[in-house]
Design a protein around this nucleic acid. Sequence first.
RNA 1: GGGGCCGUAGCUCAAUCGGUUAGAGCACCGGCCUGUCACGCCGGAGGUUGCGGGUUCGAAUCCCGUCGGCCUCGCCA
Length: 592
Amino acid sequence: MHAYRTHHCCQLTKADVGQTVRLSGWVFRVRDYGKLLFVDLRDHFGVTQVVIDKDSDALQIVQAVRVESVLKVDGKVVARSGDQVNPNLPTGEIEVRAESVEVLSAAAELPMPIAGTAEYPEEIRLKNRFLDLRREKLHSNIVLRSKVIASLRRRMIDQGFTEFQTPILTASSPEGARDFLVPSRLHHGKFYALPQAPQMFKQLLMVAGFDRYFQIAPCFRDEDARADRSPGEFYQLDFEMSFVTQDDVFAAIEPVLYGVFEEFANGRNVTPPPFQRITYKDSMLKYGSDKPDLRNPIEISDVTEIFRGGGFGVFAKAIEEGSIVRAIPAPGAGTKARSFFDGMNQWAKDEGFAGLAYINFKAGVGGGIAKNLGPERVAQLVEQMKLGPDDGVFFACAKKDVAAKLAGAARTRIGQDLDLIEKNTFRFCWIVDFPMYEWDEVEQKVMFSHNPFSMPQGEMHALETMNPLDILAYQYDIVCNGIELSSGAIRNHKPEIMYRAFEIAGYDRSVVDEKFSGMINAFRYGAPPHGGSAPGVDRIVMLLADEPNIREVILFPMNQRAEDLMMGAPSNVSPRQLRELGIRIVSEEKPS
RNA sequence: GGGGCCGUAGCUCAAUCGGUUAGAGCACCGGCCUGUCACGCCGGAGGUUGCGGGUUCGAAUCCCGUCGGCCUCGCCA
């Protein structure tokens, strides 16, 4: 007989009755009757009930240990009769009558319970992650993650992609996120950087002729955390393809994403390919965001012209000064109490905006600012927005970017408040035609809006002739349920266009030669047109596991301040280590 | 760096307007119990109310400061 087990804890059925078996696992729950005792023995696979009575020496042993101790149980499989069957357990038709029990590892009193579904403070959970991971939900999330990654790999390989590993210790790059730096021992004063993404390496793989590459790639960015953004590190399904257009990239990845979502959808709907394509400009207008949640049916309209010179003075004046007005319909909300509308206005103010004006229609008669606006313009509004007789409508008036942002946030909030968000559905879309450049208000200069390696639409001709802020890029994001899964691009593979593109953003030729020498040099020797993308693996799993926080799908996540509470990272290092690296720590001066 | 919410027993929570010795469930320790599956019953132990200061006859409660956690803005090519 095996030293620890003949079966796992989700294996035995009626067919095994009469067998002598050996199980090992954790004490999940104990029900002790003094002269009779039940143990739910748990392992990775499931739970089996072990029963011990007074005839067994095991009784005292088990009575002496706490839950979560590890036991090895030898016993006989017996059938449960009638009302003793537990229909909630795959092994519920049998139990193991223990003949002997060995304590493999006794557990101390726990800082947090394993059984049950109660919520616990993040700090305790992270400090005791090995315990948290025993709990059913987190345990199954992590297993799901593994299955999703296996499925992605299989689907990518089936599509003709080849997986390669790219370096972790690489060079720091300008632009983009803050790098994590690693000091060099052999070159004092010089640093490696951990890759923010294997961007240049994957492009070099295309230059090297590998045609289709992918990798479940670890990426490192030293930026602050969010609920859907782990601090420090995350994983992407990084891929790149040669001799492709934007449509070829979409056609390659859509079936992979659709397939993996379908595989783990568990009855939820997945929008089939081809996914809807929305231009960046349209998305900012209709959804007030470049990552729209299409489960929300609300669409925003521009109604600047209806308010221009109208009776609602605040807006009319603002429009003269260059503001715009965006209208967010609230279907069926017209009959809601005034507190709903005032509450939205207050919310907008709390978020730092000027506020939200509104009209509430009751049986076609408009309240709110309808009187100020006048019947003719209200009628125009109803016509343009196709408003129903009992709809509400909110108005965001501000400079273009701010108005779009407020309208987008209001759209999300109204959708939630009115319970309009479609349930059990994954809605994918592509956001395309991102602008190549944007105006940086702080630096007062033109800068890359997304990826500097994207090919501008119109190539050199566009760079030479157009206003930089009007140039679009072959740059695209894939979005699911309001979460940005990835951004990608058809790359700029022509050195001359690259130099010119960087020049517009204020980097001269020597900067490109120095910072991107590996890539720009490679492009001089024959580079295929290529493009790709990199969907976030953690976010895919987060969506499939229906978890609102990315920590719930990561084995050992850091907290918001980028600390690993279990391992104690980051930590001090020895003076000797610092000496070797030629590093001296400058104590942080507190501002007085 | 800014804003918001939170911090009471190992865990989840309670404590009326500032008023008796800060309570309950789970967990823990002891006892009883032969068919439970969130077992049940009896008893016990467990508290610097995050920390520091202030107001008050009296502070978990009010004020100031500080620390920590989460969410968010900035940031994330």
